[in-house]
Design a protein around this nucleic acid. Structure first.
Lengths: 232, 232
DNA sequence: GTCCTTCTTTGCGCAATCGCAAAGATTGCT
DNA sequence: AGCAATCTTTGCGATTGCGCAAAGAAGGAC
């Protein structure tokens, strides 16, 4: 069954493309459901496909040879990901895992040269995404190199609620299950330190949190924590 | 005076382009000399141009609002840089400074859409470079998040000698002046810690170093240091 | 409802690395 | 050659955040 263009027409990535272009693009795609915690693609595997996330949240993880890992980023609805092949890479540089049940569109990488040359808007949109990601990754290097753990954890949580926040009575909640360990792997620290920080913040009324759940009650004070360095 | 295509024909970036394509591309370029420590473009400035480095070394620096900074990367001969506009950004995300006297080709960003659509090989080469840089930056995040200072400094120096190493009687030398402070800003530590590490390595005969100069005498042992974590 | 697994909290000691300070070396300038 | 500026070395105390351990929740499965 062919996919209907309405499922992607509203996404920023496909902005500026004609309806019939969307139909052509969709001819090569198929829709796949990934259950929570299942693997979409694995680090070092051949970059055979690229993807657009229709619903859910995807965790992108990089692992070192000796088994330590970090979370490179979370993919939100509407984003393209797994574009390694379009950037001239043969393998994926990271593993993508469904953080919740996800619906994903999948294209074979082999169709990229054709699609990107036929639809420059698609190509431009993709490279804008890549540019944003490079920028963001470099900002993270700066943060890791210059900021203390408390600032980094505060920034990471703020980024998550901006990206995927959902309003509740208690405040703005991160929209998918996230453990202390996950937050530690986003910020280059340990789950122990994250736990201590969250406990302290909860005591001060800045956040409310539970098992795999974080709700920010007072974003403004969290912003202060993210900026304000202990001393200088 | 028109630039001769021979100055760029051998660069990987222009691989697969016809001689006449090179001539067309060069019509929009001009060649500029940047004296040591002069600024090529500044962070936050409008991304009006993009560049190819013909000779020399360029230091790319990102600065935080509160004035701390890191070295994002060094650009080597033949590389394209300052491509913010091609990635859909309006301003440069970092400052580029000539580490030594440099010769640079400059294009107005406005010609990019035309050039990239007329010469897909140019576009592909650029995006491959960007892909490599993204990959490299993410590797750096992983390193900052999981490794100790000694490993990070060892890795940074190994990367520099691979990228720009020059053989001398004493070993392989980094081909441009680099201070302890610079190395600290590449690895997220302080010049004091870098100085201590280099002193210790020099004592062990792994490196020879002087003012703004580092020569690796025993690359193999440095690799061990970069991999081997103190305990586990 | 009960058990089991996974996640979270918290205490405590220690190691890594920073911050500050001051002295020593090197280079370039005049 | 002499001076000034910059870069480098090194000591020492102060902290941050880690590592380890063990107990306490919170869900999920049957």
């Amino acid at each position: 069954m062919p996919l209907d263009r309405s499922i992607i027409a509203h996404l920023a990535l496909f902005h500026g493309l004609e309806p019939q272009a969307l139909d052509i693009i969709l001819k090569d795609a198929r829709s796949v459901l990934f259950a929570k915690e299942s693997i979409v693609f694995e680090q070092e595997a051949d970059a055979r496909s690229f993807y657009v996330l229709l619903s859910g949240h995807i965790r992108v993880v990089r692992t070192t040879p000796d088994g330590r890992q970090i979370i490179a980023r979370y993919i939100s609805e509407g984003e393209i990901f797994g574009v390694a092949a379009a950037l001239g890479r043969l393998t994926y540089p990271a593993t993508a895992v469904a953080a919740v049940d996800c619906v994903v569109l999948v294209w074979p990488s082999s169709v990229w040269p054709d699609l990107s040359s036929r639809f420059p808007a698609l190509s431009a949109g993709t490279f804008k995404t890549v540019g944003n990601r490079l920028q963001e990754t470099q900002a993270r290097v700066l943060e890791l190199a210059t900021e203390q753990v408390e600032q980094r954890v505060a920034s990471a949580i703020l980024r998550l609620i901006n990206q995927t926040g959902r309003k509740t009575e208690a405040g703005i909640e991160i929209d998918f299950p996230i453990s202390r360990q996950d937050i530690a792997e986003m910020t280059g620290t340990t789950l122990h330190t994250v736990s201590r920080l969250l406990s302290a913040w909860e005591e001060k009324g800045i956040i409310v949190s539970g098992r795999q759940r974080v709700t920010v009650a007072d974003p403004h004070r969290l912003v202060l924590l993210a900026e304000h360095r202990g001393d200088r």
